[in-house]
Design a protein around this nucleic acid. Structure first.
Length: 210
DNA sequence: TACCAGGAGAAAA
DNA sequence: TTTTCTCATGGT
């Protein structure tokens, strides 16, 4: 919690994952895979303008049409398949609401069964779209842990996730903030001061050197 | 010009 | 089982 409070004091409360609906968050979770968020925003704007930002539309949209709409997000061919897979899965299931009614373990397992939904994407959806207390592990988190000698950084995803969840209270808002702060820290930390007020490290905690 | 970004899955070793 | 490769746009 020391790291968390340090980053919170430095950057303040983050309003992360801007979206108008839980479904939009799920769409963004796929589109943001290894991609800058500004590119994802362009793709989401295209979907919105085409009135395609709904499960009903996306679950039946031809891949060729989807490819054109999400092109700005990069990896458009493979992401169109992944997004289509997720939407058809959700449609067959009965919607996000059904997923939300399941236990965390069941919902997570179900999401991971979708080709194109890996652990981080599944946990993004669980935490930010469904408000479930699941800690999201991303590249930044691994670098932060590694930099602070709290982990090697190449541990299995679930090993790190369970590690966070074991020492933190199962608080959805805390998990949302923590992950958002880690990302903010990676983007902005230490640019103006020799020692980062958030993590206590020297200038080297910029970018890859978190 | 080169590098990086809010990963995942397939292929190769 | 573990490592490497592929997917791609847009901003800095």
């Amino acid at each position: 919690m020391q790291l968390y409070h340090g980053m919170l004091g430095c950057y303040g409360k983050r309003e992360w994952w801007p979206a108008d609906s839980a479904f939009e968050i799920a769409v963004g979770a796929v589109l943001t895979q290894n991609t800058n968020w500004t590119n994802v925003e362009k793709a989401i704007a295209n979907l919105r303008q085409a009135k395609a930002l709904s499960l009903e539309v996306l679950s039946v949209m031809p891949l060729a049409s989807l490819v054109e709409l999400i092109r700005p997000s990069g990896y458009y061919n493979i992401k169109a398949k992944r997004l289509s897979n997720l939407c058809r899965f959700l449609s067959d299931l009965g919607g996000l609401e059904v997923l939300a009614a399941m236990s965390i373990a069941s919902a997570r397992s179900a999401l991971l069964s979708v080709n194109g939904v890996g652990p981080e994407t599944a946990d993004d959806i669980l935490l930010y779209a469904l408000d479930r207390p699941v800690f999201v592990i991303d590249t930044y988190t691994r670098r932060l842990l590694s930099r602070h000698a709290l982990a090697k950084g190449d541990e299995a995803y679930d090993e790190l996730r369970l590690g966070f969840e074991a020492v933190l209270p199962a608080d959805t808002e805390l998990f949302k903030q923590y992950h958002a702060l880690i990302v903010e820290h990676a983007k902005q930390a230490c640019r103006k001061k020799p020692v980062c007020e958030a993590c206590g490290l020297q200038q080297t905690c910029l970018k890859k050197m978190i």
